[in-house]
Amino acid sequence: MKCREAAEHASALLDHDLDLTLRARLRLHLAACAPCRRFAEQVRATRDLLRGAPAPAPDPGREDAVVAALLRGKPEPDDGP
């Protein structure tokens, strides 16, 4: 396995989404190749940093508009287009 192929599979490895043969070949490559190990570790760190990140709040103007629409509630049947 070449470095490029190893890098391409580094993300699937995190999700146990590689078949046995491919996973074995990848692990063999990673054991022998420090740059690829570093790359795979960084992909893992990236995935871990994302977990649970709170969604950004909407723009205040947008939030107000949505809440106002919810408070107005049910539009009249002939209210819409």
Binding site: A55, A57, P58, R62, E63, V66, V67, L70
Partner: peptide
Amino acid sequence: FRLLVRRHHVR
């Protein structure tokens, strides 16, 4: 409403 919108709207 506001809490729910703030939490989920962007997603």
